[in-house]
Design a protein around this nucleic acid. Structure first.
Lengths: 226, 226
DNA sequence: TTCATATTTCGATGAGGGTTGTATTATTTA
DNA sequence: TAAATAATACAACCCTCATCGAAATATGAA
């Protein structure tokens, strides 16, 4: 019926190729030798697979000297991989835990324009535990106590409510399989925490670096240990 | 690294299985003999593949007499298939055109809560051609002329603007590869056109039926021929 | 030029998986 | 009860494709 769906899926179906793509999901560039090492195959084999994925526009290359650096061709590819992880069987938990430790992108990253990853989920949970945030259906809302807390951070509820975006919808985290805060509030939180120096952006990546100050504050205020 | 991504992709990577899944994307139930016929394989083969997909929670069965009816297990599966079609090579156009004619879901369907498919895209284009709608970046906006037109349909701009959703963002259509109207305006349009009797919902499906009245109006007002 | 490193090409091997024929079970019809 | 239909189970065949050794190419260093 549509042979191309099968073709593109076949490209993702090989363990070596999926390991490579998963590694490239951090948005940064990687030399082929590193990808071979991560996928636990010989360089010839990795080269073979990278060429297949080049032809299919899944990845792209940049030559620098005798190295060739590979990266994902588009954010759409990353999105497909995320979606596939959503419906992957639950037995993934163990290997996901291993994987999580290996890559910064699982610790803290941006999801569109808000905070996601382990820190994003933990912060959401902590805000609820402390009675700053409530969850109803698929949306969060802030309490009177929460309003005061946010103002300390420099976030004025009124300003956010005035924007045309949804206030604070749930967003499902693919590594954590739990919800975190999205929408206007999620964005305001991220912007303010960046400005406050808890996190810094890692260039060309959706990954965030947790600064020493951020580590301290997260532990002190929310008992989040990294 | 994460073996399950490869496993789930492997399930989608077989032409027979992808043909079956694509057929099931209309949301309705199908007996296994029909799926075998569509995938152009013997019943044994289809049965073999359906079992694999059952084990992986991609599809589910209902027994009725000596028939077994299959359907997609969840909307998440449908979403993954849509995403995969996005990054499928452009050579898909021909086969997509064939496929389009075979299934009502390509003509008109709901996408979340707004109108999509061939009709959704054509209607969006017609509204722009007639100067009712303008497109800037990733959002649509209505003109003074458009405001009057919408009021005839019973849509009051003020009511929509007050909702907290985005007004009228673009949404990419996977069968048409063009944009259609989403957001608050997209929803209002769909609701009003359903009420006006241009379309009717097909139960248990995201597909929409274009009523005789709808066919007439679409041709008269927008020169959309079905 | 000579050596070392990074990557690719070619060729042989072998495993995994899709297809189908035959047989079996379950259900409906006569 | 017998015959017909829907679907599944088992087994043999076949074929694609990932893998890796050996060799070739390309770049950089000494």
């Amino acid at each position: 019926m549509n042979p191309d769906l099968a073709k593109i899926a076949a490209l993702l179906s090989d363990p070596t190729r999926s390991a490579i793509l998963l590694c490239l999901m951090d948005g940064t560039i990687h030399p082929s030798s590193e990808l071979a090492y991560i996928a636990k195959v010989k360089p010839q084999t990795a080269s073979f697979h990278l060429h297949k994925m080049l032809d299919a526009d899944l990845v792209s290359v940049e030559k620098h000297g005798r190295h060739r650096y590979y990266k994902l061709k588009s954010s759409e590819v990353a999105r497909v991989l995320e979606q596939l992880l959503h419906i992957a069987p639950k037995t993934a938990v163990n290997s996901l835990n291993e994987f999580r430790e290996k890559s910064a992108i699982h610790l803290a990253r941006t999801c569109y324009d808000h905070l996601a990853g382990y820190v994003g989920v933990q912060l959401t949970n902590a805000l609820m535990q402390q009675g700053f945030l409530t969850k109803t259906d698929m949306n969060f809302d802030i309490t009177a106590k929460g309003r005061i807390f946010l103002e300390e951070l420099g976030i004025i509820e009124g300003n956010i409510r005035n924007s045309r975006r949804k206030f604070a919808p749930c967003c499902l985290d693919w590594t954590e399989r739990q919800h975190h805060i999205a929408g206007a509030l999620g964005n305001a939180l991220l912007e303010n925490l960046l400005e406050a120096g808890w996190f810094s952006r890692i260039p060309k990546t959706r990954a965030l670096k947790v600064t020493p100050k951020g580590k301290l504050e997260l532990k002190k205020r929310f008992s989040i240990q990294l």
